[in-house]
């Protein structure tokens, strides 16, 4: 079977097919015969004859988390995601920054007022999670508007707290 995964910003295409003795892996230039012992639903002993490792994997929200030799890798399935739009995050798209919390937490303070002029790099709000405060900053010069939460509200990484709009986009 053919698979395509993205780990951070790198993409990999591979095929993995059952063979008489185990699996045949093909990854770029590399071809390997793998033996696989599945120890429990999340644990695999994989060997290519020269090297043998115990790996652990779990699927979380469509992404596969894989632990190998002390590091965790997050594999995003490129084939499954189709043409999902790029993550907005707090990136500036077309002169608008939708500001949301960097992690789920509690809104401590909105530093800017509705309609206030803000400069790039200026703090716009403070979100607290696990007792640590995180300051969210403006990524462009613009006007703050659409403040939709108050201090004390729980905020997540999806719903914008406010937006910052470049003056020429108003």
């Amino acid at each position: 079977m053919h698979y395509e995964y993205r780990i951070k910003d790198k993409s990999y295409a591979l095929t993995l097919d059952k063979s008489t003795h185990g699996y045949k892996l093909s990854l770029g230039e590399r071809n390997a015969d793998l033996s696989v012992v599945r120890i429990d639903p999340n644990s695999f002993m994989i060997s290519d004859g020269a090297c043998s490792r115990l790996l652990h994997a779990a699927t979380v929200n469509g992404k596969v988390y894989v632990h190998c030799n002390g590091s965790v890798h997050i594999l995003e399935d490129i084939l499954a995601e189709g043409q999902t739009a790029g993550q907005g995050g707090t990136e500036v798209i077309d002169g608008v920054q939708k500001v949301h919390a960097p992690m789920p937490g509690k809104l401590v303070k909105v530093i800017v007022a509705e309609g206030e002029k803000v400069t790039k790099g200026a703090p716009v709000c403070i979100v607290e999670a696990m007792k640590m405060e995180n300051v969210v900053v403006a990524k462009l010069d613009g006007i703050a508007r659409g403040i939709s939460f108050s201090p004390g509200d729980l905020v997540d990484t999806e719903t914008p707290i406010l937006e910052i709009v470049a003056e020429d986009k108003l």
Binding site: L14, L34, A57, V64, V66
Partner: peptide, 12 residues
């Protein structure tokens, strides 16, 4: 890396 991707495919 090869093992990580193989484990990912198997778990997926």
């Amino acid at each position: 890396l090869a093992f990580v991707l193989a484990a990912g495919a198997l778990a997926g």
